[in-house]
């Protein structure tokens, strides 16, 4: 498997088919040859991986969105990956992962306050 071509930037989908995020970066193990230990998510990791001015701007922007303490990137151990096809499917639910800062803030301060926020479409 070429990590760059078959894993990075793929969509991550949880066990219920909900969208979790993208494989913004990966964590490699120390072994030889190194193996993928975990998937990393979040705009900050993405910005750091991209590098350059654009990447720095993205990383700084993402850093500012965190409340008091920076929780670090969302990390999904590779053993939680069930299948890897055109997307990466997880064994676990998105509820088992930390809630992304931006999603949490927008949900609590904007979307939840509008009537009908709990109703799914059809």
């Amino acid at each position: 498997m070429f990590i760059g071509f078959h894993l990075l930037d793929r969509q991550i989908i949880d066990c219920d088919g909900l969208l979790v995020g993208k494989v913004d970066d990966v964590e490699l193990s120390d072994g030889d040859p190194p193996e993928v230990a975990a998937l990393l998510m979040g705009p900050q990791v993405l910005g750091e991986r991209m590098g350059g001015r654009l990447g720095r701007v993205l990383a700084r922007l993402a850093h500012r969105l965190h409340a008091a303490v920076d929780p670090g990137p969302a990390r999904i151990p590779y053993r939680d990956v069930a299948v890897r096809v055109s997307a990466v499917h997880l064994r676990i639910s998105y509820r088992d992962l930390p809630r992304p800062a931006l999603e949490g803030w927008l949900c609590d301060h904007v979307i939840e306050r509008i009537p009908g926020a709990g109703r799914a479409g059809e």
């Binding site: 909900l18 969208l19 993208k22 904007v110 926020a117 799914a120």
Partner: peptide, 16 residues
């Protein structure tokens, strides 16, 4: 960014 989108979930699950 890989965020949840679309009509199949409630807005509170796709706040962004």
């Amino acid at each position: 960014f890989g965020w949840q989108w679309g009509k199949l979930v409630a807005p509170r699950q796709a706040a962004r």
